[in-house]
Design a binder for these strands. Structure first.
Lengths: 296, 296
DNA sequence: ACTAGCATTCTCGAAAAATGAATTGTTGCG
DNA sequence: CGCAACAATTCATTTTTCGAGAATGCTAGT
C-alpha cells in the first residue's frame, strides 16, 4: 500500500466517482479503477459499492477513510518538518475573516514580513466555518476566526477583541429612529455568505428586535457592504474598527449594542497535533508581541 | 513520497547502514541507495551523513524519523481497521512477562480461544521493558507488564495482583536462617535478564538486606530458575502463585515480604491512539470477565 | 429503445524500480 | 606500505509498474 494509492482512494471517496476522482488527480479513469482494485485486493475486502451513478463507501471503506486522510496529512507535515531547520521560511498559509483581514492584519503582516522575509505567506479570507475546516484538513496552517471555538483537535489563542456595531445609513441617528423609520418587517440585513458568524449574530439581533423575517442580502466584499449601507439599502453588523477605518465612514452611523451582542473575540486557531512549523511559530511570536502593544 | 520510501528510510535509520537495511528489506544495496537519494532530493536536504562505517541521521533525518515510524504504524493499523468488521478475527499479538504467562494466562487464553476461535493469537514472553517498547512500536497489540507504568501513549488496565515472595531452597525455613547461613555478601540472586522489573525489585531488596554486592546469575526460563533455587544455587523473587503451581514446589521455601516489596500489580497495556481491533476488544472482555471471577 | 454517464477491461508504450557488476573510498591489519 | 574487508555509489540492464487511449458493459432517465 503506497501513499499514492491512499490518495487515490481518498479522492474517489470524496468525489464519489472514479471519473471525477481521475479528473482531480490529473489522470484517466482506467488508472483509478486499477488502483482501487489493487487496494481492495490487498486489503481483502471491497471498499466501494459500485452503482450506476458512482461509488459509495462500504463499511471497510468508511473505516479506512480517516486513516487515509491522516496519512496524507502526515506525509505533508513530514516533509515540512524535515525541511524545517528552525529558521522560519517556506510557505505559510493563514486564513482570516474578511473583517479581521481588513483592519487588524495589515500591521501584523508587515511586521511579520519584516522579521521573517524568507516565509512566503499566503492569506485566504473566508467565513469562519470554512476556515475551521481548512485548518482541520491541513489546507491552512492557522486562521483568525470569531470565537468561541471548541474543538478537540484545535488550539486557540486570543488575538483581538472587537466591538460589533450595527451600521446604518447616516440619516438614522439612533436605533430608535431606525426602528421608527423602517417597515414593520425591519430593514434589509446585509451580510457575508453563510458560514460567517457575524451573520448568525446579526440574525439573532434581528430576531430580538422583532424582525424575524427581514429581507437578507448577501455580499462578498466588505467595501461593497459598507457602500450598500451608506446607500441605505439596509443595515449590517461589523467591528467598530472596520467601519472607522473605512473610506465611507462619514456616510454611515454606528449603533452600539449591549456587550452580550457587541463583544466578540477573534481567535487564532491552529492544529493541536503534530509539528509546529518554525514559520508558524514566528507568526505566533509576532501575534503575541502585537497583542501586548494593543493591550498597552 | 511513497510509503515504501519511508520504510526504506526507517530501515536505514534503524540499522545505521545501507547494506544492513537492504538485507532487512530483502533487496540490494544499490536499490536502497537510490531510494534514499530520491527521498533526499524530494525533501531537498540530506537525511544522512555518510561516513565510512555507515550512515548517521542528520538533523532533518532526525526530524523525519518519528513521522516515518508513525506513518508505517498507521498504514499497518489502517488495513487492520478496514478489515475489521467488528467480528474478532485475524492476528492478535499479546506480550507477557514469563511469570504471568506461566500461571495467569493459560485459563484466560483458553477462555479467549473458546469464545473467539477466529483470532490467531500469538504470545511473546519478554521482560517488561521490551514489552513496553513492543506495544509502543506496534509489534504487540497489548501486553501484561509489571506496574506501575505511566506513559502518555499507553493505557493500562489492572489485570492481576501478585504477591512476590523470596524463594530459597527448602533447607532455609526462614529469612533469619537464610541470613545466618549465607556468607557475608549474601546468597546469589537468580533473575531473568535485564529489563525485568522483578529483577530490579530483587536488587532493591538485596540492598536493604545488606547484600549490595551479592553475586547475580541470569537465566532465561522460569523452570530453570526454580530448579536452581531448589538446588540451593541462590534465591529469587517470584509471584507466590507461580511457585505454588510449580512442580518443584516441595523443594523450596517461600519467604513473605513486606507489602511494599511484596505487592505488585500486573497491568495490561495497549496503545492509546488509533483503532482498537475487535480482536483486542474481545481479549479485553475476557480479561475483565476473568478479573471479576478472580475478585469474587 | 435510445442515449448519456460511468466503471471496467485490455493493450501498448513509457517511466520507474530492482538487479548485478564494477567502482570508489575508507579502515584495520600484517 | 600494501592489501583485504567493508560500505556506499554509479552504471547498464532487466523487470515491473504505471498511465494513456480505445473499446466494452452496465444502468438510469427520456
Amino acid at each position: 500500500m503506497e501513499l499514492s494509492d491512499i490518495q487515490t482512494f481518498a479522492a474517489v471517496a470524496r468525489t464519489g466517482g472514479i471519473t471525477r476522482a481521475a479528473e482531480e488527480l490529473n489522470t484517466v479513469q482506467s488508472n483509478v479503477t486499477q488502483r482501487i482494485k489493487a487496494l481492495e485486493a490487498e486489503i481483502g475486502t471491497p471498499l466501494f459499492e459500485r452503482h450506476s451513478r458512482g461509488m459509495a463507501l462500504t463499511g471497510a471503506g468508511k473505516r479506512l477513510l480517516p486513516y487515509a486522510q491522516r496519512m496524507a496529512a502526515m506525509s505533508r507535515e513530514a516533509v515540512l518538518a524535515a525541511r524545517d531547520d528552525g529558521e522560519p521560511k517556506g510557505p505559510l498559509s493563514i486564513g482570516s475573516m474578511e473583517t479581521t483581514a481588513a483592519v487588524r492584519l495589515p500591521p501584523l503582516l508587515a511586521d511579520f514580513h519584516r522579521r521573517f522575509p524568507a516565509v512566503r505567506l499566503s492569506l485566504r479570507t473566508s467565513p469562519t466555518a470554512d476556515l475551521v475546516a481548512g485548518v482541520l484538513d491541513g489546507t491552512l496552517d492557522g486562521a483568525f476566526v470569531a470565537g468561541p471555538i471548541a474543538h478537540p483537535d484545535l488550539t486557540a489563542t486570543s488575538a483581538f477583541r472587537e466591538e460589533l456595531v450595527l451600521v446604518s445609513a447616516r440619516r438614522w441617528a439612533s436605533l430608535a429612529e431606525l426602528r421608527a423609520g423602517t417597515p414593520e418587517s425591519g430593514p434589509t440585513a446585509l451580510a457575508f455568505r453563510t458560514g460567517c458568524t457575524y451573520r448568525q449574530r446579526l440574525d439573532q439581533i434581528f430576531v430580538e428586535f422583532g424582525w424575524p423575517s427581514a429581507a437578507r442580502f448577501e455580499l462578498g466584499t466588505l467595501d461593497g457592504m459598507i457602500g450598500c449601507v451608506a446607500a441605505d439599502m439596509g443595515v449590517t453588523l461589523l467591528p467598530r474598527a472596520v467601519v472607522e477605518r473605512s473610506a465611507m465612514n462619514g456616510s454611515v452611523t454606528m449603533h452600539a449594542l449591549s456587550p452580550s451582542h457587541g463583544r466578540v473575540e477573534t481567535l487564532f486557531i491552529q492544529r493541536r497535533a503534530g509539528h509546529q512549523t518554525s514559520a508558524l511559530h514566528g507568526f505566533l511570536s509576532c501575534l503575541t508581541r502585537d497583542d501586548d502593544i494593543i493591550a498597552a
